[in-house]
Design a protein around this nucleic acid. Structure first.
Lengths: 223, 223
DNA sequence: CCGATTCTGGACCCTGTAGTCCACCCGTTG
DNA sequence: CAACGGGTGGACTACAGGGTCCAGAATCGG
């Protein structure tokens, strides 16, 4: 169902229009993050953003369309926040400072909410449009981490593939750590997971580049 | 709202009753896992389980109560599945076989659905009852991993705290890996994350027990 | 075999929600 | 200062979904 979307989402043509659209997306983002997408009614969004139905449907084709905008906004927010730290990272110590900032932020939020992007995954991963948006967000995030790792390498660059892998594991550790932190209401899993990933990064970037740390085979071997 | 729950959930008193209750929970679990809790209507559950409204409300106080039962069931299923592998693990190589099995299973599911337990977290973590159930599930899972690690240690036991930490990181890696696998529709993040955690376990359990692998301080130091 | 009890079928109600529609406001432009 | 078009307010509709109820079937205990 819902075959022809495409048109219907006119972008605002006025400063005021831009403002309302932004207000709506911001309010929706907040509510959806804390209550889940399906549990957030459009009426609630409208009340929180002090807008009206017609305004919402003036800028968005339907709820799915709004959700897409929310995901994109969340991605931008997360990337902006983390980049503020990551861009200044030039050493392992800097990476650990970033770790501490993440942990501290999570603790401040009392481990509620989880990752602003990650918490959307389970609810949206089966609908193609928003899943792609989430994937783009994570890809960009990963790219930002790679940049930080390159800065850490400094004068002795490493194969890009290695850095990409390390960035992936760091991102996975962050997501898994946040997920467990959210359910156990403790930052400890997050701390452990991030430390593990960062320790590995430190090992790999310290000594001359080698693929694996040397153990039994059967890696990457399946089927 | 909804202050007095407690009573209202009579357990079945007949073989037939047990069967229907189980059918309902199983159907609900399947639907909720693939479509999300909020997106699963009771009508859909009833159709899938070939039961009727009155049956559902005969065994469950309300939807929340059903969700709780689903979470518990999922926890049992996951633990049973993984324990079938984990209980036979007595070496790092065994742990890697488990890893391969997990990856293969994920690939077979085309990376959809995510973790049977983890995918409920974002939607339920803010409602106290089900969050506790999820936390119990993860705690048990962690305990099972610790048991496997103890088996790996064999004759030279390690401090339990270390094993618990390692189990936590392994679980975090699994969850984060599955989450990224689900969004990117690729098992690679899962492989990398699990390998990282297992490599670390191999390191720690191979050589005489040391706390950290020796790098700059500022670990576990906050506030 | 009979009464009591558990279980089942499905019609019904009511609230909440996505989405529509139209009349009106207001800034801009000529 | 008109008139045009983007922007706004909110009433209204249609319907899906949670939850209730009761009559009747299956089953159990004696």
């Amino acid at each position: 169902m819902r075959i022809m979307r495409s048109i219907g989402t006119e972008p605002p043509r006025t400063a005021r229009g831009v403002a309302t659209r932004a207000r709506i997306v911001a309010a929706a983002a907040g509510l959806m993050r804390s209550s889940g997408v399906a549990n957030t009614s459009l009426d609630a969004v409208l009340e929180a953003s002090e807008a009206s139905k017609s305004q919402l449907y003036h800028y968005f084709a339907d709820k799915d369309d709004l959700v897409l905008a929310v995901v994109q906004r969340q991605a931008e927010c997360v990337l902006a926040t983390h980049n503020a730290h990551l861009q200044r990272v030039t050493s392992i110590a800097g990476l650990r400072r970033w770790r501490n900032a993440v942990v501290e932020l999570t603790r401040k939020e009392k481990c509620a909410g989880g990752c602003p992007l990650g918490s959307f995954v389970s609810e949206l991963a089966e609908s193609d449009g928003s899943r792609a948006a989430l994937a783009r967000g994570f890809a960009q995030w990963q790219a930002d981490i790679v940049t930080a790792l390159e800065a850490i390498c400094g004068t002795t660059p490493r194969p890009r593939a290695t850095l990409v892998e390390l960035a992936t594991t760091l991102l996975a550790a962050l997501q898994g750590g946040l997920l467990l932190a959210q359910t156990t209401r403790s930052v400890q899993p997050l701390e452990l997971a991030l430390d593990l990933a960062i320790d590995r990064i430190a090992e790999r970037l310290a000594r001359p580049s080698r693929r694996a740390s040397g153990h039994v085979g059967a890696r990457r071997g399946h089927r």
